[in-house]
Design a binder for these strands. Structure first.
Lengths: 121, 121
DNA sequence: CGGTATCCAAAAGGATACTG
DNA sequence: CAGTATCCTTTTGGATACCG
């Protein structure tokens, strides 16, 4: 399949989805939910330093994109579970592959950076 | 390979590389250079709407990360060719896979969005 | 508990002018 | 041609307070 090079949102809607799943918090949410279902506060702890605002915002974006299923149980106090849809599992697998490649390549990148910096000092 | 869930830059350096290759302009540059070597102004035209500032900045970041080779021929007027290194080819292939998956999944995403929006109106 | 609303700081990004 | 420098606007993200 050929990927379009056009850039604006109108001509390139897939870019938006790509940004959602590769965003700072999107990646971490997908990887956490690939392991298991999490509650809102569990995600906060698992991910570490994420504001409530960004966590809620990213969850809503991915839910709207059909990647995440939100199950709000009508109890007091509220209990909300987040899990991946089949589409979300695909996204998580893709993102994990890219993240794993990046981790494997990190030594090569660091070597390249040292050479780049050294050649300019 | 297990991908770390830690988030800060200090504990999670691979996130930076991931952001570089999946950034708005990083993706488009990698895909363009995967096709063929480009000059600076050729990249501007191929990518479409990108400011000189962002193009230069992203090219430098990816060059420093060892993904891009910059060949500046000392002629007047200047002639600078950008191409992918072996590491850059790996990155481009990974990113292209993700971009292709995103394009394939776009119809499913759009359906999900319509349902999400409809259920809230 | 699981959010939303508001405000503010920081970063990203674009337009333009200029240069070797 | 291939950038750099500057200024400005837009976007992103965090902190805090509050609510059902």
């Amino acid at each position: 399949m050929k990927v379009s090079n056009r850039t604006s949102e109108e001509t390139c809607p897939y870019r938006l989805v790509l940004e959602h799943v590769t965003s700072r918090w999107g990646v971490l949410i997908l990887l956490a939910l690939e392991e298991r279902t999490h509650r809102f506060s569990e995600l906060r702890r698992t991910i570490g330093r994420v504001s409530e605002k960004m966590l809620a915002q990213t969850l809503q974006t991915l839910e709207r994109d059909g990647m995440i299923h939100r199950n709000a149980r009508p109890v007091i106090p509220p209990h909300v579970d987040y899990s991946l849809t089949p589409l979300g599992r695909e996204a998580a697998a893709q993102v994990r592959k890219l993240a794993e490649w990046t981790q494997r390549s990190l030594p090569a990148v660091q070597t390249a950076r040292e050479q780049y910096d050294a050649s300019r000092s």
